[in-house]
Write a protein that binds this DNA or RNA. Structure first.
Length: 635
RNA sequence: GCCAACGUAGCUCAACGGUAGAGCACUGGUUUUGUAAACCAGCGGUUGAGGGUUCAAAUCCCUCCGUUGGCUCCA
């Protein structure tokens, strides 16, 4: 007899070899109908799996995250079959689930186009209606290799698979695919699906390999959930910083300068507020600030190693037969400043910041609004210190990063530690010491992090801070990079206690990363609704009619005298229209002034996003607003 | 850079072989308004650029530029 323990604590005794499906039938017809897969003894399995011995069993339905993932995985297979029916020449490569959906990589010379999606969905519908059982076939690795012989992709997949038992899944008569599983019991059980997009993807993510067609889709337990998901996507697009940037007149891009952002007056207000705050925090954390040139002689870049390691991302210009590079990084210039005089251990740690404008040539396909550009301002700093000071300094930077992110309301970010890449300078020993110090600092602060082997900068390992945009794509903001190489290349020294000259350790770090990117992420984070301290226009005075325009002007003067960024709506529209426009412009406060308010010398305060109004004196409003600004209230 | 799609008025979109149209914005006028968009009129386009096919091209074909979604690469 087998003994399965259910999540509610019950134990069921069934004969060995009883399938999970039979057990679900025993528990209840509802569950039997809803079951898509199961977790048996901590393994994800098909419901057709027989049980033996004693094991915990959790039956999964589309409501469980794991069950939904199984549905999505099966949906990928169903889509693959549909595509194979429509394009018999298609070769299947790899079809995993991703967040909120799945994709299948397909090798097919004829392009699959968005107008084909309906045909694919119709064919999938047919497969779903057929509702054929999905069965698992197991065999040895050798048998599996023979079964797929001639198919380079599946052969490769088998060679990469773990374990000696290789499984295939088959549904209907013809369709079979190499797969670890598990899958839902039949093709009728994949929920409400939609084919979303198609894009090129290199085999194994290697640009030297063939480009495959990656077809993306999603599926949800019910049509209602599918529609809710599509609505969410639609909503997310409204938060897109490129859309809001145009709508709110913050910035623009032009064909004349692809990848170079033009900041408009309102965008500059946000920018300057960020910079003011940044300077205040950095002064408090013991940073000095410098500014170095954008164009520097090519020879400097030979010395720094950028010529050998970064040339393809750099811009150059020739004047008087001399080649200058447009700086892609601020460090070499900062090192020239360091070398203008002797340094003592007493100055260390020396924290030198620079809001440096850098240019990096990015291939055309990777630009993305403000988030990925060819010219950006790094909130850079270089910390010169002794080896003993590395860990406390890195901890200090981590604390600084957390303080600044918190001020903007960023609670969700993740941390990555990147190690030695193939193309690098410096000895293996240096890399090891540097990498250990970074990990040590993270562990000291008890922060979880993910290791990216081989993803470091060419001069040292790094810690990166990543934040997601409106569509869930994550981007790197802050970074802490250790560098034992650059000081050697530039023969930097400091005089130590024992009166000998030694090379300092250099830490490159950025908190916001790129101001442009940060601004983009910030816009999406707030959906354009900037907190009061950042809002380009903080208050708008709305007269009920021209009759109270004069009083409105008076209130405006009070607001402006108090240092608030305020405007007066002089239009002759009705008050409802003026309010609607304020919402569109994302103005945090609306002050309605009509005859009543003029009479009592007050203002009717209405907050963005709310219907409630409150009457108070202009002075009381100013005091409350200034308090919010001073504390950088997030509302 | 690669794969696919897209590019029409300032913005959002329509017209899909027969000499470009709407809403919003903008300008002028009417209205003098009480809490999420009053009314009328006007202005506005060598349809991203260049070439080709055709009696005729926004529409079909080619090249380039830009943008979008991915891949690769990075802040």
């Amino acid at each position: 007899m087998a003994e399965v323990r259910l999540p509610d604590g019950r134990t069921l005794e069934v004969p060995d070899g009883t399938t999970i499906r039979a057990i679900t039938e025993q528990i209840g017809p509802q569950l039997a109908k809803a079951a898509v897969a199961a977790r048996l003894d901590d393994r994800l399995v098909d419901v057709s799996t027989p049980v033996a011995g004693a094991a915990p069993l959790t039956v999964l339905t589309g409501k469980d995250p794991e069950g939904l993932e199984v549905m999505r995985h099966t949906a990928a297979h169903v889509m693959a079959e549909a595509i194979c029916r429509l394009w018999p020449a298609a070769r299947l490569v790899y079809g995993p689930t991703v967040r909120d959906g799945f994709f299948y990589d397909i090798d097919l010379d004829e392009p699959i186009r968005p107008e084909d999606f309906e045909r694919i969905e119709a064919e999938m519908d047919r497969i779903v209606k057929e509702d054929v059982p999905i069965t698992r076939i197991e065999m040895t690795r050798q048998e599996a290799l023979e079964r797929v012989s001639g198919d380079p992709y599946k052969t490769d997949n088998i060679q990469r698979a773990d374990g000696e038992i290789i499984s295939f899944y088959r549904h209907g008569d013809g369709f079979e695919d190499l797969c670890r599983g598990p899958h839902v019991p039949s093709t009728g059980r994949i929920g409400a699906f939609k084919v979303l997009s198609v894009a090129g993807a290199y085999w194994h993510g290697d640009a030297s390999q063939k480009m495959l067609q990656r077809v993306y889709g999603t599926t949800w337990p019910t049509g209602k959930e599918l529609r809710a998901y599509l609505d969410r996507l639609e909503e997310a697009r409204k938060r897109d910083h490129r859309v809001l940037g145009r709508q709110l007149d913050l910035f623009s891009f032009h064909e004349e300068g692809p990848g170079f952002a033009f900041l408009h007056p309102k965008g500059m207000i946000v920018w300057n507020e960020i910079v003011d705050f940044w300077r205040e925090v950095h002064r408090r954390h013991g940073y000095q600030e410098i500014k170095t040139p954008i164009l520097l002689n090519e020879s400097l870049w030979h010395r720094s190693g950028h010529w050998d390691n970064y040339k393809e991302n750099m811009y150059f210009t020739v004047v008087d037969n001399t080649t200058y590079a447009v700086k892609p990084m601020n460090c070499p210039g900062g090192l020239l400043v360091y070398k203008t005089r002797k340094h003592s251990y007493r100055e260390f740690p020396m924290r030198v910041a620079e809001l440096g404008l850098v240019h990096r040539y990015e291939a055309s396909g990777q630009m993305h609004g403000l988030i990925r550009v060819r010219q950006f301002t790094q909130d850079d700093a270089h910390i010169f210190c002794t080896p003993e000071q590395i860990e406390p300094e890195v901890i200090g930077v981590i604390d600084l990063v957390q303080e600044i992110y918190r001020a903007f309301g960023f609670e969700e970010y993740h941390i990555e530690l990147s190690t030695k890449p193939e193309k690098h300078i410096g000895s293996d020993e240096m890399w090891e010491v540097a990498t250990r110090s970074l990990a040590g600092a993270l562990e000291h602060r008890g922060l979880a992090y993910q290791v990216n082997e081989g993803d470091g900068a060419f001069y040292g390992p790094k810690i990166d801070f990543h934040i997601a945009d409106c569509l869930g794509r994550t981007w790197q903001l802050g970074t802490i990079q250790l560098d034992f190489s650059m000081p050697q290349r530039f023969e930097l020294v400091f005089t130590d206690k024992d009166n000998t000259e030694k090379p300092p350790v250099m830490i490159h770090r950025a908190v916001l990363g790129s101001l442009e990117r940060f601004l983009g992420i910030l816009i999406e984070h707030y959906g354009g609704n900037m907190p009061l301290w950042l809002a380009p226009e903080q208050v708008r005075v709305l007269p009920i009619s021209e009759k109270t325009l004069d009083y409105g002007q008076e209130v405006l003067t009070v607001l402006q005298q108090a240092g608030l960024r305020a405007e007066l709506d002089r239009g002759d529209e009705k008050i409802g229209a003026k309010i609607a426009r304020c919402h569109g412009d994302r103005v945090p406060y609306m002050l309605v002034v009509g005859p009543k308010e003029a009479e009592s010398r007050s203002v009717g305060v209405r907050m963005r996003g709310s219907k409630a109004t409150q009457t108070m004196t202009a002075g009381a409003f100013v005091a409350a607003a200034k308090e919010k600004i001073a504390t950088k209230a997030l509302e």
